[in-house]
Design a binder for these strands. Structure first.
Lengths: 194, 194
DNA sequence: ACGAAAACCTAGTAGCACTTGGTTTTTTGT
DNA sequence: ACAAAAAACCAAGTGCTACTAGGTTTTCGT
């Protein structure tokens, strides 16, 4: 994960479709329920059926709002990005850490992100386009918030963060934040242009 | 990925089932074909049907050798581990790098490993048991080959390696080996017990 | 209050992993 | 060499799931 701020890219390209008040509420409701369902199902991805039932809808009802199951999942991450951009000042180090602590404590979100991240290797997958926007935004945030020595340090930090998420999924006792803090300290101690 | 050496755990617990000569050959053939299929399909995991066709078998024919599709995938990684343990001396730094260079150049293997890694968050998934054995073996190899300052450095390096694989899937131009070499240099320059 | 568009459902379809219950092929014991 | 015996393999299913087609109901601007 590591932050993002979709809202920073541009002014919301998606969601051109018109909606009634009930519709926008339902859409948000589905996103929330899907995230909960993702947390609940340790195994693979949750079934569309379960998500639908959680909001008293049929599967077709859910698909009315999202092009496909995977589009729904990516939409969760997008919504999360927008939300984070509003609630935290990601361009300061303190804000970034605060965001990370909250994100890590949301089970399912990490798994969702990693799943989408691997799925994105297919250019046709909706997650591909999302990450093509998300990744540079993360870079931007890291650069502004931490002011590391060079681009390499930024890339490494982000890679380490994602790798630690992967590990955390298997071993939840992993102190993700602590490990990252220590790495940042190490990177900052390094001379520039090393 | 980052090496492994399944053969180091114990003396092959699995494969107690008896097999004719043709059977063991087929099994190996399937493993090879499945890896190729995994590389070919950028999208998700390959279909059982495609793997079966590649070796002139039906789907049921393949399932005769592997309990399930996911068991087959995990078996690929296990076979790979055994193979690597034979072909490289993973307890030396040179051997470790050589192994890594070859592994990274095998498309599909990385994706397979990452996929199994996320699937392993479900304790019921066959990849869970595999990684429970694999992870400590990797730690062992890293410790022996690199002699880093402390356990934290080892954990971080492994996490970074996995994170870089995730990134490499999206951006194949990523210089995975180069980034890792630089991190190792940085970690070795650090004082012990920092 | 009326009409149009969104919201939603019923009843499918198709693709997939996997099972069942066999037949064929390979191997081993004598 | 020649039966058993067991592995190798297949045809035809089953069940689950994401998704579609087409219709009905609800919302809401005018």
């Amino acid at each position: 994960m590591l932050a993002s701020a979709t809202a920073l890219y541009t002014g919301q390209v998606n969601d051109v479709t018109k909606r009634y008040a009930k519709g926008t509420a339902r859409r948000a409701e589905i996103l929330a329920a899907a995230l909960v369902a993702y947390s609940a199902s340790s195994r693979s991805a949750p079934r569309l059926r379960d998500i639908a039932q959680a909001v008293n809808l049929t599967e077709a009802g859910v698909l009315h709002y999202f092009e496909s199951k995977d589009h729904l999942f990516v939409a969760i991450l997008e919504a999360r990005d927008d939300d984070a951009a509003k609630r935290y000042d990601l361009h300061t180090e303190a804000g970034l850490w605060a965001y990370l602590e909250e994100t890590v404590c949301t089970p399912g979100l990490t798994k969702l992100f990693v799943d989408m991240s691997t799925a994105a290797s297919d250019p046709q997958h909706p997650a591909h386009a999302f990450l093509a926007r998300h990744d540079p935004a993360v870079r931007q945030v890291v650069r502004a918030a931490l002011n590391l020595a060079d681009p390499w340090a930024e890339e490494l930090l982000i890679a380490a963060a994602e790798g630690l998420q992967l590990r955390w999924l298997r071993e939840p006792q992993t102190d993700l934040i602590g490990e990252l803090r220590r790495l940042v300290a190490l990177l900052k101690a390094q001379p520039r242009h090393s």
